[in-house]
Computed example of a mutant assay.
Amino acid sequence: MTRQFTDNPQFYLTAPSPCPYLAGRQERKVFTHLVGERANALNDVLTQGGFRRSQNIAYRPACEGCRACLSIRIVVDDFDWTASLRRVLKTNDDIVGTVTPPRPSSEQYSLFHRYLETRHADGGMADMSVVDYAMMVEDTHVDTVLVEYRARTADSAITGRGHGPLIAAALTDRLSDGLSMVYSFFDPEPARRGLGTFLILDHIRRARAAGLPYVYLGYWVEGSPKMGYKQRFRPQEVLGPTGWRRV
């Protein structure tokens, strides 16, 4: 059940449900619909205000007595390319990402399903059907792309495309001040590649090339092992009561 939260645009508040990040806690979300001509501008404003997008919904946590979820974004121009992160780039130099429209495919779903089974079998997305996945990708009224990663070949420098099986994919929103990584997934087998880290590093490079100052990573939750990887990417800005501050 939901109830109306405010007007213009209309916001709603979800009923309490178990928190997926911190055991024993309840979560609530405030959300609104991203539809119509103003969807793109609204997505910009809301993302900068700590919301995330899922299909045509923008949401943020609104939990009573808990402020553990912190919105974070990477500062692109000052990014610290540490030796370990550069090694990840070098390891994955044989992969190239191609920007495509947000159109689902059976190949994407197969990789998505394999990724969830291996990495998030107990998560809320584990039982997503082909139809659910298609909705996640294509149900958008904002500036969204899908970046598909495949093996680099001799002509990739000219065509900008890779070839062969799909290795990874990232659903990404393009904002006025950055790239927002909505959801990404990858081949779970070659763990040594650090593909999850590589996708974020590649988006940092893409944002810099486009002259965009930020890469939005969603929420970081202190005490949640699922979110620990996000601390590698610095400097970051965290959204607090007085606005964004660098950490």
Score class of each variant (00 low, 15 high):
residue 195 L to V: 05
residue 195 L to N: 07
residue 208 R to G: 05
residue 210 A to N: 01
residue 186 F to G: 01
residue 192 R to K: 15
residue 198 F to D: 00
residue 201 L to G: 00
residue 198 F to R: 03
residue 202 D to L: 07
residue 201 L to Y: 06
residue 205 R to F: 08
residue 180 S to N: 10
residue 190 P to M: 13
residue 204 I to H: 07
residue 199 L to D: 05
residue 190 P to Y: 11
residue 207 A to H: 08
residue 202 D to Q: 14
residue 203 H to F: 09
residue 182 V to G: 02
residue 182 V to I: 15
residue 182 V to C: 08
residue 187 D to F: 06
residue 180 S to E: 02
residue 208 R to K: 14
residue 180 S to T: 03
residue 181 M to E: 09
residue 193 R to F: 05
residue 206 R to A: 15
residue 181 M to L: 15
residue 199 L to R: 03
residue 210 A to F: 00
residue 189 E to R: 10
residue 200 I to E: 02
residue 202 D to W: 10
residue 181 M to K: 05
residue 190 P to C: 12
residue 194 G to Y: 10
residue 181 M to Q: 08
residue 210 A to R: 13
residue 199 L to H: 04
residue 198 F to W: 15
residue 186 F to V: 02
residue 184 S to I: 00
residue 180 S to F: 06
residue 199 L to Q: 11
residue 180 S to Q: 01
residue 207 A to T: 11
residue 191 A to V: 14
residue 204 I to C: 01
residue 204 I to S: 04
residue 181 M to T: 14
residue 202 D to T: 07
residue 203 H to M: 14
residue 201 L to C: 11
residue 197 T to E: 03
residue 185 F to R: 11
residue 199 L to W: 03
residue 192 R to L: 05
residue 187 D to L: 05
residue 183 Y to R: 06
residue 195 L to F: 12
residue 199 L to I: 15
residue 194 G to S: 13
residue 191 A to T: 15
residue 200 I to P: 06
residue 210 A to G: 02
residue 191 A to L: 12
residue 185 F to W: 07
residue 198 F to K: 03
residue 206 R to I: 09
residue 196 G to V: 12
residue 189 E to A: 07
residue 196 G to T: 12
residue 200 I to S: 06
residue 194 G to I: 08
residue 201 L to K: 06
residue 198 F to N: 02
residue 201 L to Q: 06
residue 192 R to Y: 05
residue 187 D to Y: 05
residue 181 M to W: 02
residue 195 L to Q: 08
residue 181 M to G: 05
residue 183 Y to H: 12
residue 200 I to W: 10
residue 200 I to K: 02
residue 204 I to L: 14
residue 203 H to Q: 09
residue 198 F to P: 01
residue 209 A to Y: 05
residue 191 A to R: 15
residue 195 L to H: 04
residue 184 S to A: 14
residue 197 T to C: 08
residue 193 R to M: 09
residue 208 R to D: 09
residue 208 R to F: 05
residue 195 L to E: 00
residue 189 E to T: 08
residue 200 I to L: 13
residue 183 Y to F: 15
residue 188 P to K: 12
residue 206 R to D: 13
residue 202 D to C: 08
residue 209 A to H: 08
residue 180 S to L: 04
residue 200 I to D: 00
residue 207 A to R: 01
residue 189 E to G: 05
residue 187 D to A: 09
residue 179 L to G: 02
residue 190 P to L: 11
residue 185 F to I: 11
residue 186 F to E: 01
residue 188 P to N: 11
residue 183 Y to E: 04
residue 187 D to K: 09
residue 204 I to Y: 12
residue 191 A to I: 15
residue 197 T to S: 15
residue 193 R to N: 08
residue 182 V to A: 04
residue 201 L to P: 04
residue 179 L to P: 00
residue 206 R to Q: 15
residue 199 L to V: 13
residue 199 L to Y: 04
residue 195 L to S: 01
residue 209 A to T: 05
residue 179 L to R: 07
residue 193 R to G: 04
residue 190 P to D: 09
residue 185 F to S: 01
residue 188 P to G: 11
residue 185 F to L: 07
residue 184 S to T: 09
residue 201 L to D: 00
residue 190 P to S: 12
residue 198 F to I: 03
